[in-house]
Nucleic acid binder design. Structure first.
Lengths: 134, 134
DNA sequence: CAGAATCCTACGAGATACTG
DNA sequence: CAGTATCTCGTAGGATTCTG
């Protein structure tokens, strides 16, 4: 590979593109909900289900997922408004990736967690709360 | 924050944990380099290879990867200092995930990219450069 | 060489208020 | 109901400087 000039952030780096999608704070959860529900969900339903999310963050998450082609947003011209979100084919296909990710994660995330604990226990190089400095 | 019912951010959500690791700006690249090199790499080597990364960012990335158990950091008490980074078993095992990720990404990232273009073309809700406002 | 420490800035995200 | 519009604040990350 040409490690000279790097397409780390360009659209030429597929992994980067996908990881950036998944990296959004609420994406995994929204995708998971839509997968589990297996039916269109309204904004309010999502909002209530994803506890802790603000409408702003949820809106942004959904807009991004729509833009990226993972969800389809359908507005019904009724009053009061009714907006439904459903997975696209791509969004449904992402299930494969999420499954692979989840499998690997379930197997290895615990190792990561315990590695962190070990590291943190052995390297109090950044003074923890109980040491006073300055 | 009130995560009463939802383990979205807790260590109990393996996918979240792993995605958060991969989400770091330079992680994919560092991991890819160490995989490709198949030998320990020095800090300077990594720095030179990952064009555009700053010392601070690279250091932080490597520290995180070390903490999470993906890389092993070895300091040689020589002068000048020599610090080598190599993949751990977990880091090497991550290759499986990265392969799965990359396969899926190569297949689908283009769809994401083109979806973005379509979306952006159709929704100039935020006035583009060529419309003057104010 | 491999960083640590510092300064600085852009952006993400929460809280709040308003609307078709 | 499903957003949009502001405001603010915390933090990630770049640039720069210093050191064992």
């Amino acid at each position: 590979m040409d490690t000279k000039s790097l397409p780390v952030f360009s659209a030429d780096c597929p992994s980067r593109t996908i990881v950036d999608v998944l990296a959004n704070k609420w994406v995994l959860y929204v995708l998971g909900l839509l997968r589990a529900a297996d039916r269109p969900l309204r904004f309010g339903e999502l909002k209530r289900s994803v506890e802790g999310v603000t409408q702003k963050s949820l809106t942004k998450t959904l807009r991004t997922l729509e833009r990226d082609g993972f969800v389809d947003r359908r507005v019904h011209a009724t009053v009061p408004p009714r907006v439904e979100y459903r997975l696209t084919d791509l969004g449904r296909d992402a299930g494969q990736l999420l499954t692979a990710l989840n499998d690997w994660a379930k197997h290895n995330a615990p190792k990561v967690v315990s590695s962190r604990e070990t590291f943190d226990a052995g390297q109090p190089r950044e003074a923890p709360a109980w040491t006073h400095r300055g």
